[in-house]
Simulated scan of single mutants.
Amino acid sequence: MAELIRMGGLELRFLQEGSGTGGGLDLFEMQVAPQARMPVPHYHESWDETVFGLEGAVTFRVEGQDRPVGPGESLFIRRGQVHGFRNEGPGPARCLCILTPGVLGPGYFREIAGLLAATPPDPAALRAVMLRHGLVPVPEG
């Protein structure tokens, strides 16, 4: 059974994780609510990310350039590339996210979801969880 994790305007359904793929990959479906976005641009230290569009369009901002990913389109984000994403559309957008190698897993997202449930969320705690899991937040500017 796939694990479902909800946090803010994001919903992730984990389909595969590194612990079950010999560290080969993490695979999850991500649904982004209308007008939702990843609040903190970041980069990954230890994995690459490939995104495949399923429904609607998720706009990824990679190294300062907007790259919309719609149904049937894909985007490769190399480790170290600063990125974030948003859904500017009127309806939900869905994509598959493939992380290689599979070193992140759902634990990171569970922790972030727990922190986001607090009102207001603690930015220092969010940053600490990101760093501990290999995501490096980068201030917008």
Score class of each variant (00 low, 15 high):
A93I: 04
S74Q: 10
A125T: 01
V32S: 10
E63M: 14
Y43H: 06
A113R: 13
L131Q: 02
V51F: 05
P101V: 08
P139Y: 00
F14R: 09
E3Q: 12
I98T: 07
G23H: 02
P101R: 05
S19R: 12
M7E: 09
E88M: 06
Y43S: 01
L25E: 10
R61C: 15
W47I: 08
G70Q: 13
W47S: 05
P121N: 06
I112T: 12
G107L: 14
P120S: 08
G20H: 12
R94C: 10
P92V: 15
V103L: 06
G72P: 15
T59M: 02
R127D: 10
A124S: 08
A118P: 14
P101I: 08
W47Y: 11
D48C: 02
R94W: 09
C97A: 09
L96G: 07
P90H: 15
Q81M: 04
A117E: 12
E88D: 13
G102L: 09
I77T: 03
P120C: 13
E49W: 03
G8Q: 03
R37S: 07
A124E: 12
M1H: 06
A117I: 10
C95A: 15
L15P: 03
F76H: 11
E11D: 04
H133Q: 03
D48T: 03
T119D: 15
P139C: 00
L54Y: 09
M130N: 01
D122W: 03
P139W: 00
R127K: 08
P34W: 11
F52L: 13
V32T: 09
R132V: 00
G102D: 06
G24L: 04
D122R: 03
N87R: 09
P137R: 01
G89R: 15
F109R: 08
G91A: 14
G20E: 06
P106D: 08
Y108S: 02
L54H: 05
V62W: 09
V51I: 13
L12Q: 09
L135A: 07
G134Y: 01
V138Q: 01
A33W: 00
A93V: 10
R86F: 07
L12F: 07
F52M: 05
I5L: 06
L96C: 10
V136E: 12
L12S: 09
D66R: 11
F76C: 05
Q31V: 15
A93G: 08
E73M: 12
G91C: 14
W47K: 04
D66W: 11
G107R: 13
R13E: 14
G22N: 12
A124I: 11
T59I: 02
R94F: 14
G114P: 14
M30N: 06
L115F: 13
L115S: 14
G84Q: 11
T59G: 01
A33V: 00
M30E: 10
R86L: 04
G20F: 04
V69K: 00
G18F: 01
R78E: 07
